[in-house]
Write a protein that binds this DNA or RNA. Structure first.
Length: 380
DNA sequence: GTCCAGTTCT
DNA sequence: AGAACAGGAC
């Protein structure tokens, strides 16, 4: 990434940009341009804390960064309204170590709030650093074309048949009373994680065996011995640990929640074997109470390939939890639940972890990673 | 042999 | 960050 942001142009394009981000008003741009063209005022030459790759310690001045923006029509009224926004602290009054990277720099509105709404107008600022043109997206701003991409994936998913479509913990215990149904959803999520879905669901599944043997309630599992639970859920992945966790969960649910499951994210996360992915899934499915996106490795991988998530200073997120937080910043809440089965199925059939089928993908023209991971790994 | 996939442990 | 957990698919 790059630290110093400056503009040397007062073209109409940059003026339009400045209207979006009032810190970039041309008058300000001229001042900040000086920042990049010479030494940074107050910058101790030995300070390497803010140096980025490509910058030599105490070396030449940081690269000049030219900022452009997509041209777009704006009514005079809208422009005037935005110009009335309160002034912000000039960059010059900041210490170099406090200079934000471009993501943070661009996304703050003068009033400090994140971007309002989810319109495309805030997406994809194009910057040039040392001759390399790249797109950056202000933190929390929706990626451009995300709606087209989502629609394109929906199209692919409507014709493809992914394993996630036929099975899923959504259906678990749908004929049971509410409390039993919720417990069944929790158990079903636990069993189906890290395993092939047909093993845990379907007519002769682990969940069905528990149900048919009357051990799909907290009370019954608490009374049953671990060995019989283990044999009933076999051969789901990690059945030994899951049987053990199931017993502990049943005991906790019985003691603390009257045989029901916890109704808050925090309490769900206290259960053994329940991490963030399943806690959000259970909140969404069992309680119909959406607190966050259920991010599994498919959602994590695909969102990064699409360039939908990042963390300041980096192009990608490194954990599903980071992905969840970054995604939640801009994805409209009505998509929080459907995004999981959508991307899981897409990830099982087309956007696979290894050698994704970019040639079969209907959104490859909108994907920054298309055809970039098709090479075979070299043996070392 | 390698991959899958979420959590916990190191 | 990487291993361990299970066992099936390829």
């Amino acid at each position: 990434m790059f630290r110093v942001v400056a503009a040397s142009s007062t073209s109409p394009a940059s003026t339009a940009f400045a209207c979006q981000f009032p810190r970039f008003h041309p008058s300000r741009m001229r001042r900040t341009a000086r920042l990049s063209s010479g030494r940074r005022p107050e910058a101790p030459a030995s300070s390497s804390s803010s140096l980025e790759p490509g910058e030599a310690p105490g070396g030449p001045s940081p690269p000049a960064v030219r900022v452009f923006a997509r041209k777009k029509k704006r009514s005079g009224e809208a422009v005037r309204a935005e110009q009335k926004q309160p002034k912000v602290e000039p960059l010059l009054s900041r210490k170099p170590s406090e200079l934000p990277d471009i993501e943070e720099f661009a996304y703050k509105n003068p009033n400090g709030s994140a971007f309002p709404g989810h319109s495309k107008q805030n997406s994809n600022v194009i910057v040039q650093v040392n001759g390399v043109v790249s797109q950056v997206r202000p933190k929390g701003a929706p990626p451009s074309n995300w709606e087209k991409v989502l629609e394109g994936i929906r199209m692919m998913r409507s014709s493809e048949d992914a394993p996630v479509d036929s099975m899923g913990c959504e259906k678990a215990g749908s004929s049971l009373p509410p409390k039993e149904r919720r417990f069944a959803v929790l158990v079903s999520s636990l069993l189906s994680s890290q395993t092939k879905d047909h093993v845990t669901h379907g007519k002769y599944s682990a969940v069905q065996r528990l149900l048919q043997n009357d051990v799909l309630t907290a009370d019954a599992i608490d009374k049953a011995d671990e060995e019989s639970i283990r044999s009933l859920i076999y051969p789901v992945g990690f059945y030994t640990r899951k049987a053990s966790n199931l017993k502990k969960i049943a005991t906790i649910c019985l003691a603390k929640y009257d045989g029901d499951i916890p109704s808050s994210l925090e309490e769900l996360l206290q259960l053994p074997g329940i991490g963030p992915k399943m806690a959000h899934l259970v909140m969404n499915i069992a309680w119909d109470n959406v607190h966050g996106i259920c991010v599994d490795t498919h959602v994590h991988r695909i969102c990064n390939r699409l360039g939908w998530v990042s963390r300041p200073g980096r192009k990608k997120t490194s954990t599903p939890e980071e992905t969840r937080e970054a995604l939640q910043l801009w994805l409209p809440k009505e998509e929080w639940v459907p995004i999981n089965p959508l991307l899981v199925g897409f990830g099982q059939t087309i956007c696979t972890p290894l050698r994704p089928r970019c040639d079969k993908c209907g959104v490859n023209e909108l994907c920054p990673s298309a055809f970039k991971e098709t090479m075979l790994k070299k043996k070392s």
